[in-house]
Design a binder for these strands. Structure first.
Length: 344
DNA sequence: AACTCGGGGTC
DNA sequence: GACCCAGAGTT
């Protein structure tokens, strides 16, 4: 299916309605790369401040390559999907060292980098180098499925293949970068997931879903997400100046971030270790629910205080005045800010 | 092909 | 509560 004026209408719409976003004012593939990783599964409003901080702290790929992972993760704190930050860091070192600072300038080479998949390689290649590649993200899936009336589920290999060819075949004859920006912006602002205003849509006349009242049904997805329930008990052990923390090193959520010593249980039943109760006093117990896409975390913070020297065992001791320099999960950050940062 | 990886907005 | 967001890596 090829619609001759599909791309032209999108670009025309884009020139009038586009948002003023910083990564659209540069041709620097490094900055475009940062923006694309930040925006993966992330709304523009949420990612924008992170992008600005990142570019400010690491203006060039070498700055990122020379930073510590803790610092990179700290700048990513609160944004989620932390493998994005770890992969950014890894790939920046590869570019800076093995590629001698020369940023990959084509789709195939971009795709080799850790953290860059088909979408991101297409985006960078077309935005920075105007390479003829079609982006295929959530916005494009939605628009194409509605406009062309594709009922095949988008989260299957068959569906992806079909949408890929559909997207590629409808590229304009030039200006691939601008066009890719246009189709995604159109999906984000006009062809929204829920209740788009089709009455003002420049594509409505030939839109299959609009003509057939199937906007709500498209795009079609096959899989439903399952949520796993987990029980976390964080134990805060502090004296006047310090608190015990640990680094998450397993293949699990929040890898390489820090937290208070964690006891995960299979249900709500948990009692802190007796040696702990004996030497410290429980001053506060806080319960919280933390929702992730695939997990529901039932969390209890057990807050102990005492004068016993914390550095007796093989514990990681963190000065309270330095605690905010460590990257931590959002729920841990919340607890720290509310309970530990006003302690002298 | 199914699963895993965050956090926040929207309805 | 369900779905979505400029997806990618692992199993």
């Amino acid at each position: 299916m090829i619609d001759e004026d599909f791309s032209l209408k999108l670009i025309k719409w884009y020139n009038v309605n586009k948002r003023d976003l910083p990564w659209r004012k540069t041709n620097d593939p490094y900055k475009i790369w940062i923006s694309e990783i930040v925006l993966q599964q992330t709304r523009v409003d949420q990612g924008l401040p992170y992008y600005l901080n990142f570019i400010k702290e690491f203006p060039k790929v070498q700055n990122l390559a020379n930073a510590s992972e803790n610092k990179v993760l700290k700048l990513w704190q609160g944004l989620g999907y932390y493998s994005r930050a770890r992969n950014l860091h890894f790939s920046s070192k590869l570019i800076s060292n093995e590629l001698k600072g020369k940023f990959p300038d084509n789709y195939d080479d971009l795709l080799k980098l850790k953290g860059i998949g088909e979408y991101t390689a297409s985006a960078i290649a077309s935005f920075a180098f105007n390479e003829k590649k079609a982006v295929l993200d959530g916005n494009v899936f939605r628009l194409l499925s509605r406009y062309f009336g594709i009922l095949i589920p988008i989260d299957t290999s068959k569906g992806k293949k079909l949408f890929n060819s559909l997207a590629y075949n409808n590229l304009p004859k030039s200006n691939y970068g601008i066009y890719n920006q246009s189709i995604m912006e159109f999906g984000a602002l006009q062809c929204k997931p829920s209740s788009p205003d089709c009455s003002i849509c420049p594509l409505n006349i030939k839109c299959w879903a609009f003509s057939n009242s199937k906007i709500k049904e498209l795009p079609f997805k096959k899989k439903k997400i399952k949520v796993r329930l987990r029980y976390f008990n964080f134990v805060i052990i502090q004296d006047n100046k310090s608190v015990i923390m640990e680094k998450r090193i397993k293949k699990d959520i929040w890898r390489n971030l820090y937290q208070f010593p964690l006891f995960e249980t299979h249900d709500k039943n948990f009692e802190p270790p007796k040696s702990l109760v004996k030497n410290y006093s429980l001053v506060k117990k806080t319960e919280a629910i933390h929702m992730l896409t695939h997990q529901k975390l039932s969390i209890v913070f057990w807050h102990f205080k005492g004068k016993k020297n914390l550095s007796e065992n093989n514990n990681m001791i963190v000065k309270l005045k330095n605690i905010l320099s460590y990257p931590v999960p959002k729920i841990v950050e919340n607890y720290i800010v509310q309970n530990l940062t006003n302690v002298r």
